[in-house]
Simulated scan of single mutants.
Amino acid sequence: MTTTTTAIRKNRKQFSIAKLLLEGRAFLALVLIIVVFSLLSPNYLTWGNLLIMTSHVAIYALLGLGMLLVILNGGIDLSVGSTLAISAVFAGFMLRGVPLDLFGVTIYPSVPVTVLIACGIGALAGLLNGILVAKFKIAPFVATLGTLYAVRGFALLMTGGLTINNLSGREELGNTGFEWIGFNRIFGIPIGVLVMIVVALVLGLVLGRSK
Rank of each mutant, 00 (worst) to 15 (best):
L156V: 05
V206Q: 15
N73T: 13
G75L: 11
I189E: 07
V89Y: 10
L201T: 09
V98T: 04
I8R: 11
A91K: 00
I33A: 08
G146P: 08
V35N: 00
G104C: 07
L116A: 13
V193K: 08
A155V: 08
T144H: 04
L32K: 02
P140L: 10
L162A: 12
S38W: 04
S16K: 12
L148D: 00
G208K: 15
G48D: 13
L63S: 07
E172Y: 11
G64D: 06
L84R: 03
L162Y: 05
Y149T: 14
L102D: 04
G204H: 12
V57Y: 11
S41C: 00
L40Y: 00
I17G: 05
K137S: 07
G208H: 15
G177N: 07
T83G: 03
L68Y: 11
L28I: 14
A200F: 15
S41I: 00
L28E: 01
T54I: 03
V105F: 02
I71A: 12
L39W: 02
V57M: 14
I34K: 07
A118S: 09
T159V: 08
V80I: 09
S210G: 14
G74A: 10
K137F: 02
D101V: 06
L72R: 14
M53L: 12
V115T: 05
N184G: 00
S210E: 14
L128C: 14
L167P: 05
G74E: 12
V195Y: 02
L65N: 10
V206R: 12
I86H: 05
S110C: 05
R170V: 02
L68Q: 13
N175G: 01
V133E: 07
V206L: 15
I71Y: 14
K10M: 13
L157F: 13
E172R: 09
V113D: 01
W180N: 06
S210Q: 14
M53K: 14
L21G: 12
V142I: 14
M94R: 05
I34V: 12
G48C: 00
G130V: 04
P112G: 03
F141H: 06
A139N: 15
I8S: 07
R209K: 15
V105Y: 06
V115M: 15
I181W: 11
G74V: 13
M94A: 03
A134L: 12
G188Q: 04
L63H: 02
S168P: 00
L51K: 10
K211C: 05
F93G: 01
V199Y: 08
L132Y: 03
L145M: 14
I121Y: 02
G192K: 06
I164H: 02
V133G: 07
I138S: 01
I138G: 10
G160S: 04
G169I: 03
N73Y: 03
A91T: 06
L162N: 12
A118T: 04
G204P: 08
V105K: 10
F154P: 02
G130K: 03
G192Q: 00
L100I: 15
L167N: 07
S79I: 06
G126I: 09
L145R: 01
G120M: 07
N175F: 01
V111K: 02
F93W: 11
A118D: 02
E179P: 04
L100M: 10
A125C: 15
T54P: 09
S16N: 11
M196V: 02
A143F: 15
I197W: 11
V111S: 10
I164P: 11
I138Q: 05
I52S: 08
A134G: 00
T3R: 13
M196T: 09
T4A: 14
F141D: 03
